[in-house]
Design a protein around this nucleic acid. Sequence first.
DNA 1: CCTGGATTTGTGTAGGTACACTTTTTCCGG
DNA 2: CCGGAAAAAGTGTACCTACACAAATCCAGG
Lengths: 145, 145
Amino acid sequence: MQDDEELEELVRENCACLRARMAARKLTRIYDKALKPTGLRITQFTLLIAVKDGRAKSVSALADLLAMERTTLLRNLKVLEEAGLVSSEPSGEGRALSLKLTASGKTRLHEALPHWQAAQRAVEAELGDDWPVAKSSLEQIIRGV
Amino acid sequence: MQDDEELEELVRENCACLRARMAARKLTRIYDKALKPTGLRITQFTLLIAVKDGRAKSVSALADLLAMERTTLLRNLKVLEEAGLVSSEPSGEGRALSLKLTASGKTRLHEALPHWQAAQRAVEAELGDDWPVAKSSLEQIIRGV
DNA sequence: CCTGGATTTGTGTAGGTACACTTTTTCCGG
DNA sequence: CCGGAAAAAGTGTACCTACACAAATCCAGG
């Protein structure tokens, strides 16, 4: 048991979770702003891409792929379904659902891609040579922890 | 169309925002779980520490310090006030509010510190020598972007 | 056939996030 | 002194996040 003041200082100077959340907030604002003209948010945008990709055979599998709690994904998908961008139907395998983009979803995704690219380029330019290092660090956290 | 496929691949393999959000989600689940017995979440915990520290002279200044949108911070503070852990009153300087921990807030923070430390140690152990690098990367994103 | 465990999807509740817009207060130049 | 710019706090709406709990479906052993 050490001094509380010291521990609090340690939290301020070292907390991995605080730092990750701060970084996520900053980046989310940047990407959301860039995607604004398309009416999509970065979460919805990446979700559309993950659904189109189709390598996840169920909502549960997709949640794992996105390091997202399953029920969170369910709520996020609901928004996209109500917007007519994604459709879901029984896949025939177990109780799993099959997800796919609607025509409207494909169009919106197509329109959004350049806006994403602009944000991504701005971020990479800002970070310069440190971006590959940062990317690798983030992926290690995602995989490892 | 083929161009789009390539861009979508780029999003999956490279998006800074997606990676930051995934990392934040993973870490948040770990820290929230560790803090569970205290009834605090990691956001509330770090907010208590930031308030106790007292180097922010207003809610707006505190928001900047935490890379958080001002109105988000307002809502998060409201939860802590209703829980009786934080109190706010006019500071006398401009329209700014003065924030401070209640006795109850100090107690809860004291109880939570060891739980935070356990989570932090686990994460640092998992990342090993890469933790300093990851930390530095996150801080660069927070500052730079 | 059928039951019990494993897998998957769904709901209730609660908190975290932020944009657009508004309201309140202060401060300062004329 | 006064009127407007600047700064700070507050509200409406909508979406993101996740735990606890429940319901539906499938599959293997009896």
